[in-house]
Design a protein around this nucleic acid. Sequence first.
DNA 1: GTTAGCACTCACTGAGGGAGAGTGCTAATA
DNA 2: TATTAGCACTCTCCCTCAGTGAGTGCTAAC
Lengths: 342, 342
Amino acid sequence: MDERKQKILSAIVQDYIATAEPVGSRTIARKYQMGVSPATIRNEMADLEEQGYLEQPHTSAGRIPSQKGYRYYVDHLMQPAALSNEEKHMIRASYQAKVDGITQVIKLTGNILSQLTAYTSLVVSAPEGAGEIRYVQLVRLAPGKAMLLVVLEPGKVRHRTLAIPENIGDEDLKTISEVFNAKIKGCHTTDIKKTLMRELYAELIKHKSLVNMVLDLLQESEKKKEERIYLGGLVNMLSQPEFSNVERVKTLMSLLEQENFCYELLGGDCGGKLSVRIGEEIKQEDVRDCSIVSSRYVVDGQPSGSLAVLGPTRMDYAKVVAVIEYLTENLSTVLNKLYRSK
Amino acid sequence: MDERKQKILSAIVQDYIATAEPVGSRTIARKYQMGVSPATIRNEMADLEEQGYLEQPHTSAGRIPSQKGYRYYVDHLMQPAALSNEEKHMIRASYQAKVDGITQVIKLTGNILSQLTAYTSLVVSAPEGAGEIRYVQLVRLAPGKAMLLVVLEPGKVRHRTLAIPENIGDEDLKTISEVFNAKIKGCHTTDIKKTLMRELYAELIKHKSLVNMVLDLLQESEKKKEERIYLGGLVNMLSQPEFSNVERVKTLMSLLEQENFCYELLGGDCGGKLSVRIGEEIKQEDVRDCSIVSSRYVVDGQPSGSLAVLGPTRMDYAKVVAVIEYLTENLSTVLNKLYRSK
DNA sequence: GTTAGCACTCACTGAGGGAGAGTGCTAATA
DNA sequence: TATTAGCACTCTCCCTCAGTGAGTGCTAAC
């Protein structure tokens, strides 16, 4: 593809992204100063269409980019848009104002994401179940009622209220807690061995049922897929002309309201850090007329969640990619701080 | 209002709820077996309109209920719809399957609510900040990093990772925790006195900055309004013909996406248990063409959150009220179990 | 008090006819 | 040979307008 064709393709993609209207030869010649006449551009456009980069909604309309066209644009032509200083400042200010528990951070990130991009945002934090056990404690709340606390590295807490026999007092709970701490501290939740369990039973033979409950919870927290998810800017969908068909929006929204669907959407093969999936490249059938830009964030060296933007294929890729990259970095920093307290 | 007028009003409300079309005299005569001719009904309808219970979109259309009409219907005519056995069963089954942490329960409830009613659901759990302090513990996670745990009655946990001086070891943290527990246990978070603080400083003079951090968190958790909110079935809005105007939906949705707005919506005067607000009765201006049915649920004798359904004024009040009543009760039970572990 | 009959109103629908934007093709030009 | 001007052609969009049908209010009869 020669340079002029690239320039024309780029112009068409950009104009279509901005206006959502098919782009005509005259528009390009005028707005993008190509230095050639509309007729010449028409010839080039005919070529680009033949090669599959453009499409024509109907004979007498301008051209719109095909999926292949967007792909080429994203891979070769797109200039990464820098965030404005206000935007950067806004992001930093938000994170400084409240970084208080992961749920808040996730919400906040989703908000910023949908606000800056004007598309729908999706933030998922990975399962928190697993980790190295740092501390176990049973606390008596009332007669017959106790709370089990488990602290995991890095910086996670599980808790659960339990019914306990009425005759168990503070001292008993303290003893049990101490035994657990002695035996189990440093153990990984995925790695509670049979021998360990036998030792526990031996030492705490008097409280067998209670020990069972505790072990249950330790292991259950492992199995449980407690991902947290945030979905923001659903409204923005309604502003996109490609979703003026209400039926379309309805199917899409009801899918997004199902958490499992969102996990699948992000769980896929976005192996690398940043991924741009355009139209048919998305596996989920009902989202094939959309695009998804997503990225994994990293806490403590481990990928521990992703953030994504979902919009029409006519998405402002340059902007979205810039925002996602910037936010991923900031989010990682914030979460690392939150968990590490350095 | 005589009996026949009531019957006619009731028929109009019901028919309009079902069809969303203005109801004509012929329809009523035929479908609702009034035993009189359309002409008679027309006369009655003219009366009802004059009294303000009905409205006419335009001269040659049928009637629709006015806000006053809905109000009269809800207060005097409505037959509470019983839930079907399948529905009841579905609800109970859902709650039995997973009752695992309040967030899950809230989500689940919201889901059921929007599923059964086909409107938008809103579930808010009240602030968790306040409570009686049962237990305080500092746990060392890594050099320079600790976690503070606070257990509150009834069954709530706050935690936060802290940066601590590197030279503080497990034993120091244990000592500090013990002092805190001795001094502060049983105290209410709203009620940490100056004298108490002075005592703490005196005993832990070596770790003044750490004590400050802990006290900070104890009191901050008080101020912080950590309500949890769940919004479900937003899609359902799009199925309602009164929201076929996309602009309307957009304003409404973007309001609902703001958590503060939701709190205000439910925080109001729904003093009694169940509240039905119709149209203009809602304080928030932009929701004046909607209705809200809401109810408070109770944990441990204390109102601790609300669930609500938001829909068009043409809402199936009988159904919604039934669902909300049933769910409120179930939710209270489940949460009481969860917190009390009885 | 109730009902049949009738003229009237008004939203909705579909056909017809510009207007306008954009194309492809042809012939002229550098 | 590449580019460009000119022109006929296509197709959507929008406006207008008449026909249809549901429903009303009024009047007169039962």
